[in-house]
Amino acid sequence: MRPFDQPVVEAGRVGGELPSSGSGGRLRAFAPLRRLTADTDLLLNGLCVLFAVGFIALAVRSAAMSGAFISTDSLFMTAVCLMLAGVFMVSPALMLWERGLLKMPSFAIPEGEALIDEGPIHFEGSMRLFLNVLGGLLVLTVIEVALAYFQVPLYIMLTILIGLSLIKAALIVAYFMHLRFERMSLVLTLIPILVVCICLLFIFFPDSTRSLNLRTTRAGAVATPEAR
């Protein structure tokens, strides 16, 4: 996908775009600077790639060094490193894209596809399909309830429950809410936004466990001097 973009502009019509590297000639004002930077272009992007690789290495290190990787702190540090790596990858990726070395799938509608309400309404899925989905949801629910019945240990239960619930949510969103039959661009807009934002809320958890350990109402909350 070319996010929020259209090649009409890309090609350098009178749109308010940056000149592509091939057509920088318009920039009379910056001629000396351009000469200076022409050679550094690759170098700088290379530098960016180096930074990105460095951050990925840091992320891997953070993942490898932490004894318990499934601590939110360590997850968070890894995520931050990966994000910084992503930030540094933007510029090289843009360069590749500009030079046509990096292709992204397009989401154009096929000609003549019917629009919203007029004409035959596009509605995919049959009763059979929806019954199958409903059946799937029911089976998952039964598994969840069975877990509760058989008294699985709390943390295993939590993990499985969250996993199953995510599957159920995905089924509902995909089939009942019909997102599976919408265009990919809508899916790629809505889902990542929600996933990112909800994952961000998970950053609260290091503090909840920290709060637990620092509670004043807990016996032995403070190590006394002689205990140390």
């Binding site: 702190d73 968070f76 540090m77 931050v80 994000m83 910084l84 930030v87 950053i203 290091p206 503090d207 920290r210 620092l214």
Partner: peptide, 20 residues
């Protein structure tokens, strides 16, 4: 505010990247 100091560190680095 009593937040985990490790989390604070990560937030700090991210904050400075907003400068870019």
């Amino acid at each position: 505010s009593g937040m985990s100091p490790y989390t604070g560190m990560a937030f700090s680095v991210l904050t400075l990247t907003i400068g870019v």
